[in-house]
Design a binder for these strands. Structure first.
Lengths: 341, 341
DNA sequence: CTTCCATGTGTAAGCGGTTACAATTTCCGC
DNA sequence: GCGGAAATTGTAACCGCTTACACATGGAAG
């Protein structure tokens, strides 16, 4: 069982009565001159024969493909799904295909995939939600990215703290700080924080923002006021449990992300507690579902789609000079918070 | 600025003191024999030199790549995100990379991307949430898939109704029928349906399931009891508005999907109506967020992750014989429905 | 000690493009 | 009408890997 007759550039050239080289030029170099009417003739031949360039041959010869590599934590996480949407939108505009892989925050997987993408000569590698701080693989990862960039690839991280490639820097700490200010101004003084794993830079930054925000009002966080969980709905469930079962439960729960906040809301509901009457809850990220939660979630809304778009746009720029785009979130007050009773 | 010294298979061969061909065999054909200890020597050389095969060269020579093409409606839609998660999981297990594209239900885009993926000689093309019925492009799409499959590619549709490739068939009509039965048994007689565009086969099937379910109990749907909207949260909002503003609003709203149901819930909440006291609402699909809605959404839960896994597994099977995997949903009763008052 | 096979290895021809370089043509100004 | 620069085209050498085919080697059988 053989495929349909494959049309090679050679065939087009013959059909148009020119050499392989000329056909190639007419087809893929718009700058090139050429005798009057020749280009049209070649194009016509190509169309007539139904010529379809072989991307692998091209990639091999040119040492670059027309694909983009996107490494995210997990497609199923709305945060990354939304971000990916932005990447894909801009990629499409530039006629680029996106190869997406999920690292599930595993540094070794992340490294493996990055290598693989680099081997595929993707035009750019966009890394979102990576750990960065895993010392075991961090060095290898860095080396890989440097070498990749050296060989003409473009690197973009949606994470500050990488010393190679462009960066879309999300203002995690500033956003949290603003959020905490708002909570304090509402009258809250007793906080519980449901944090994520500390190896994530975003988590550290958000925590730092919380601490700073409290400090601005002369408040501090006790060691017990903060629990570390998995950054998932289940994590939020567990976190809420840990914090609320203490002798003196907090009146305001600050979740490290929207998804974690959902878990917390769910736990509270299951316990028959009312939000925000019994306890206020906040999220971070502003995923689309935050507005549908009941009560709707007060959060710091990041322009996730736009973050993806920015990342993809940076991916198209030359590696040097290095670009760093700052993205800020905006506080969105909704119904999950109220002054403490 | 040149990349780091690239190690070619040639270099490995020289380092190991064998010919290019032998090196190739040792490295990529585990079946091959070879003089005792030779394989180890070649492997050692490759490791020592840090050899990394060029996938494009390989793909060009073998006319097949190690990538999978996944065409979905939209990553940001949790239905497809979840499904994609399943695909990616299985793909990873087989060391395959997934190139994901979003068609946004645009048949022309879908065709364009399919061609592109076929040109890239991806091992398989998985199509989820495609329209199928768009006559303008349907023929071209079909031809493309046939030719792709003919040339060795594997086609999988998560949609019945395609006559080429494997199929993961979701029992849309059966699921809806079961759901409707449950609603009728609860005492409902007055229904409103928020449907999606009729060009989507899944929509037609679900509607058919609704009609059948009603018919089973001697009920029918009036022409006005059904509205057609975009399959999105906004669509659900609009749909709820249309149905509930009628002189005699329905007591039970059947949404064509969970996301649409979310929109409906949101509209109802904004109007100060209580679910399920004033009106019952159901969804379809069972996306993870359905459980977090308030009230939690009664829906037909599809094993979306598993659908993705099934699709990817089928993608690994030879094109013939054709496989058709049936997937059924399960009714999940939650708090968004109650007997009519 | 031949003869014949099975097995291992090397040579070289692709895979389908791009592009440096040489050869040819075209177009000037004198 | 001629010399020479500029523009166009063709030839052929890659890009890095797989694999058909030819050749060499080592035993087992006769």
């Amino acid at each position: 069982m053989v495929g349909q007759p494959l049309v090679r550039l050679q065939d087009v050239a013959e059909h148009a009565g020119v050499s392989l080289a000329t056909a190639s030029r007419m087809l893929s170099d718009p700058e090139y001159g050429g005798r009057a009417g020749l280009r049209e003739r070649v194009l016509a031949s190509a169309a007539e024969l139904g010529y379809r360039p072989n991307p692998h041959a091209r990639a091999l010869a040119m040492a670059t493909s027309t694909n983009i590599g996107l490494v995210i934590h997990d497609v199923r996480d709305p945060y990354f799904a939304t971000l990916s949407g932005g990447v894909i939108t801009v990629a499409e505009r530039h006629d680029l295909l996106v190869s997406m892989v999920c690292s599930y925050r595993d540094a070794s997987r992340e490294l493996e995939y990055t290598k693989r993408l680099a081997d595929q000569r993707v035009r750019a590698i966009i890394l979102a939600g990576s750990s960065v701080r895993d010392s075991a693989h961090a060095a290898a990862m860095h080396a890989e990215l440097v070498s990749y960039q050296h060989s003409g690839g473009s690197v973009v991280s949606v994470t500050r703290g990488r010393t190679v490639g462009h960066v879309v820097d999300i203002d995690n700490s500033g956003g949290m700080r603003t959020l905490v200010h708002a909570m304090v101004e509402l009258g809250h003084t007793s906080f519980g924080v449901i944090a994520g794993p500390l190896r994530l830079l975003a988590v550290r930054d958000r925590l730092q923002g919380i601490r700073q925000g409290l400090k601005d009002h002369g408040l501090t966080l006790g060691r017990d006021d903060i629990v570390y969980v998995d950054m998932s709905r289940d994590g939020g469930l567990a976190g809420a449990h840990l914090l609320m079962k203490r002798p003196k439960p907090p009146r305001c729960l600050l979740a490290i992300s929207d998804v974690v906040a959902f878990g917390a809301l769910s736990w509270l509901r299951a316990q028959g507690m009312t939000v925000p009457d019994d306890v206020s809850v906040t999220g971070f990220g502003g995923i689309p579902a935050a507005i549908d939660a009941v009560p709707s979630l007060t959060t710091v809304e990041l322009p996730l789609e736009q973050v993806g778009e920015n990342a993809m746009e940076l991916a198209l720029k030359p590696a040097s000079p290095r670009h760093i785009v700052e993205v800020k979130g905006t506080l969105v007050r909704r119904d999950s918070v109220a002054p403490p009773r």
